[in-house]
Amino acid sequence: MSIIQAKKLIHDYQKIGEDGKTEVSSRAVDGVDLDIAPGQFIAILGHNGSGKSTLAKHINAILLPTHGTVYVDGMDTKDAEKLEDIRRTAGMVFQNPDNQIIGTVVDEDVAFGPENMGVPTPEILSRVESSLKSVGMWEYRDHSPNRLSGGQKQRVAIAGVVAMEPKCIVLDEPTAMLDPMGRKEVIRAAQKLNREKQVTILLITHYMEEVIEADHVIVMDQGKILMQGTPREVFSRVEELKEHRLDVPQVTMLAYELKKSGLPLPDGILTVQELVDALDAARAQRGSAE
């Protein structure tokens, strides 16, 4: 069974128009179908305004569909009685670490979620320990969140979600405000949860290096899914991505340029190693082509 399923999802935002009276609606998500199997690592790409975040907010029922349906682990997000279960199943981490931390001490912050769920105290303690360990922040358990770096704060925010033992975590540009080191820490933490605890991860990001290791990539544009597939499939379509002014990894771009000028290289090269090997092979091929 799929963990997240969207059927013809449409979301319209309502806004008061220029004259201050009439309502104007703008379509942020426009007919999206999704079917995500448990345990996958999904990356979602797209410009600001492409509908990524609106889509993400449907997954734990912060937003409800204008039309269509979203199922989380089989539960319809419109079912008000299931709201708590839905939010326990799908946790969310946002962009700005400073907006997500409420505790004055790291372990208190992480305990907040399970506490509110009525988890018994001994169980809370063990959950706090294991979730802080899973993101590599256990040594900081009695620190004040104020004095942590951005990457550390984001990992505490992730631990806070992990402590609620969700089956799925949606991360909405969790690394946009971080430096390269902080970005790596956060992505590693998400990958570890995915691999070791089979938590389904939906990662919204602009950074290519965070996308290439995903199982599946979804590219959004103007509220619709523009393309999807494995990272290799998606990044083989350099022309289309460029047309929409989306990024491709620098090596993919370099391989694409070289291929255009006649070097025999495969499509969708994603890493430095792949490109170097392919160029080495091209050289050997030319050297022996007589």
Binding site: Q250, V251, L254
Partner: peptide
């Protein structure tokens, strides 16, 4: 020191190491 060169720098260095 927690930084890195652009990706293409790594490509060029690796190619050079392989004698190109």
């Amino acid at each position: 020191i927690g930084l890195a060169a652009p990706q293409v720098t790594y490509v060029m260095q690796a190619l050079r190491e392989r004698g190109m």
